[in-house]
Amino acid sequence: MNSDMTNTKILIVLLLVILLVLLGLTVYAIGTIVAIFLLAMLFSFIIAPAVDWLESRGLPRSFASTIMLLCSLGVLMVALYVLAPLLYDQVLALQARVSFGEMRKSIPLMEEELVNFFSFLGVTNLHLTARIEDFVGGLFDNILNIASGIVGMVIFVVMTLISTFFLLKDGRRLKKAMIEIVPNQFFEMSLSIMHKIDWSLGAYLRGILLDASVIGILTTAAMYVLEIPNYILIGIVAAVANLVPYLGPPTAALVASGVSVITLGDFSQVPLILVTFTLIRLIDDSVVQPLTISQSVKLHPLTIIFTILIGGQLFGILGMLFAVPVAGVIKVVASELYFGLKRYRAVY
């Protein structure tokens, strides 16, 4: 009996590993299509409660889906219309400060101070000016690259929107069709697991989005009050970096400190920036996250480190950013699957 149970467990683990490997290979091979589908799923998870609400007011599902999709698109367009020129100006201003501003004169002085401080390491030259110029120039080039790839982007966005619309409109029918092919023996179990995954995943995805938005707004407001230039850019960096636990917030603090040092030419505001980021972190840990993200989705620090490394190895910077949310999604799915199987005594 015991050896039977062990064999079942080994079989389930093996199947899960094979499934994950296949999933990984598929994502790697047809990345763009998978990205469109995943993004559409993400959007539909986020927008679905609003569509449900509109439907409860008597609107047909397809009409409610169209309205919500257009509203989301409108908000996105307005945000882009307001933020994009500001962001563009801020990146240009940052680049100008590095290339022509006073910072160009003060970087060698700072470098000299740093080399003296770390002389015991045998460091003689850090090439700070060239490195900062490369970094900011790269930022500028990336924006130009994005602009030049606008046609590809439009196709990507349109396909994602169409997929989102159909997932919102026919999501339930799709789930019903999927459950129809399940054998009778596993029917109730599959339905229960599917529902629980749907619920937990929706809550998790809406949670991380809400958390990132709150952090972005808090950071932008704090940087604006502290009169740090490029406050919107820093806010966006903080919101996106918040997706990466442990490493994200210090990175955002580092970017803010860097901008302050480049602008002012000294470290006078750095302690204040660090204190502000620590406070935002504390607010996030004690107020925002407990309200938005379930504790059960929290990952072990070691898992987070390896997840980020794997994400970085496979998909570069974007892979590092989205590795932890993807791992969170996998954890939600796997745990609901496991507890579902356990409830129905399929595993012991």
Binding site: R172, E188, L191
Partner: peptide
């Protein structure tokens, strides 16, 4: 089959 998740969905949408 008429299930609890579907009833909850019905309560939300209709």
């Amino acid at each position: 089959g008429f299930f609890q998740p579907d009833l909850l969905g019905l309560l939300e949408t209709r």
